[in-house]
Design a protein around this nucleic acid. Sequence first.
DNA 1: AGCTGTGGCAGGGAGG
DNA 2: CCTCCCTGCCAC
Length: 814
Amino acid sequence: MSKSRKRSDVGKTESSAEYDPVLYGQSPLEHVVAVQQLTEASVRLYVREGSVPGAKDAIGRVTSSDAEFFPFFFLSSPVLLDGYSKRFWIKELAGSNFFRYLVAFPRWNDMWEAIRFILNGYNKSALKRAGHFSELEPLLIKPDPVTQYLLQSGTTLFKGLSLQEIHRVQLSLETYSRTGKRSDARKTDDRILAIALTDNHGWEEILDSRKLTEEEMLRRFVHVIRERNPDVIEGHDLFVHSLPYLARRADLLSIELPLGRDESDLKLFSPRGNPLEPDFERAMFGIAGRHLIDTKALAHSYSISRRGLEHYGLRYLSQYFGFSTKSPPAITNEQIASAWADQPNLVLAQALQDCRDIRALSDHLSPSYFFQARMVPLSYEAVVRGGSAAKIELMILREYIRQKHSVPKPEAGAQRTGAYTDVFIIGIVENILHADIESLYPSIMLTQEIKPASDELGAFQRLLLSLTTSRLDAKRRMNLSKNENERGALDAFQSSLKVLINSFYGYLGYPRGLFNDYEQADCVTASGQELLRTIIREVELRNGKVIEADTDGLYFVPPDNVRGEDQELVFIDKLSSSLPSGINLALAGRYKKMLSYRKKNYALLDHKNRLTIKGSSLISRTLERFSKNYIQISINHLLQEDIQGLHTLYVSLLQDISQHRWDVIDFCRTETIHDSMDEYDLGLSEGSRKPAAAYEVARRAGLLIKPLDRVAYYVTGNHASVKIAGNCKLADEWEPNFPDENTAYYIERLNECSRKFDLFFEPEDFKRVFSADDLFGFNPENIRMLKPRFLSQTEAPPADDDASEFGIWLDEGN
DNA sequence: AGCTGTGGCAGGGAGG
DNA sequence: CCTCCCTGCCAC
């Protein structure tokens, strides 16, 4: 078995069959990339070159071996086994090195019997019809290994390969709409103007409807894909725009799209499940033997874990990540029709530029997923689509399968506790340190050896330890490496490990996790709370002043005798030494000033005068641009104690609003659509949901909306308390010459924003600063800002105006 | 068809 | 007015 190892093993003995998630593939059987069913009785295994003794062909080619057949005892639907003996409860495992299907068996050791049943072709619906399962009958789920292979892996397993070594093709469509609005593949007048393709070897091609009919373009497109034979097809909005459009147009023109490696058609998995009437707009797509990667989905995942993306437009993303060097003038959807008539080359150039941007975007966002595909038993496509809890579970399951051990059911119930969060001081404070406990939850789980009670094989702990060790090793190697490419690859590797490592805690509390354990999840959070409280106590014991704490870190003012970075580090070290071994506190940031507003809501000014704002009440994508700017500039003024600036800003904005001296982009609200219109309507009719402006405005404007779309609207009507869902219009409908936005409402919005700052002033002063009533002139000299306010631990942040009931005042100058 | 967790704030709608 | 419930978005 050890002969097949390609990398040096980390602390493993030769005899140990211990499973390592990162060095997976120690068993020759795990090198299987495909199984082919030759006849009813004969099955051929495909394995990677060099991985199994006796396999001969050239490097990189798939070779075959008749030597072994490895049966898999997995099941896709837990429901099927309800009432079945728990000991034999097994779950599906699908992946790049395993293939989907197989059987649950009353007698676990009967694998050859299982094979016979597989080859005899049982199927799920027949079993369902039978209504019960006899003790000895296996349950067969997927009888077609060849198709499964093609669907999942293509000809490459990707193991040991880099993202650059596999063949990726980028795809972009330019579509035409007669109406000038968003084009619609269902309308016969609309059509595909150009199909642009590139790949990671520098090849580029545009299929152009001036030279070819749409029909010819689609045929040519299929030909090109089959000829290039890519492992991966990448596109922006691939699943929501390009593929539905292609499928719909091909359907209208009665053209097949045999894009699969087995020449199978582009596959639709329609949620409605009616194959006669495919729902192109809602379907999921698949191409046999290739992986479909949507860069918009990648961007979406990115913005969930690391904030900062305003939307997911390709052009915007290229600029955000800084690789769109020489972009052609952007043509909006509305302009395509006219541009196509006057300057078709502009449209073609844009199509090609889109492809290059897609590749750059993918190069930037996909590597960590690619590394996961080499580690987790899922196809690359599934790795991108899937969540991290599923990946952890599959890795644990792989070990259970390997040891032929039965698998538990999820525990019913719910987690009881979460993280500790508190705010102790609100107001503006100087000289701030930010410290956090490194990898809090994973460290707790490792040091206290937390594991699910149902994990009899201890796979959870070993997996966590192994992934952590590998990550530290990768980080160390990254810091040593001088090769930029290698550093990048190692960084992608370690970050993909980080994502998985951080999900172990979440998995414990996951209601659908097979190995979930709510008690252990509570144990982790309780320990986390205790550790953070310990740090808070230690800081206060040493005369530091804690401002805010959240989950694994805190902001505080160090004691007077700690001056300068060196002493600060020493101070943090002292705090850290009060923690158990294996748990470390680290300096995470130093700041000149902090504006503390509420729990999870604050602003920081660093020593280079850069401002960071955190928290949904201070910064949010849904805030109108004017509110966002107003809050941001106001916070800056507050931190600089520029009272005059605050007042001037308020008055000038008030005037702008009153006189319509602004653009719709300044005051529209932009919301992300999460549900389809059907789901929304269902919620309304069931009464489980209230009318929401974004959906209502889209409905009235006849706009087609899908999840992830962003809808911009503004409020109309003539008093501040109108029902917004009934009084709003699309931002596009606003006309500067006939401004019909609800001025009273927007002035009230401005005042709502201002009220966030009332805690910094005495009520009378607040009224003077945030008012245009300058009858006697405005004099900032008489207005002092309030000092930071200390809240006792049990108190909530102030909800209203009565300041006097809260706590004591801090002395200034600490 | 997919699906890691809790805690927290703001704002809208509906009904008292 | 207030309270309750829901959604959206955010921090960790």
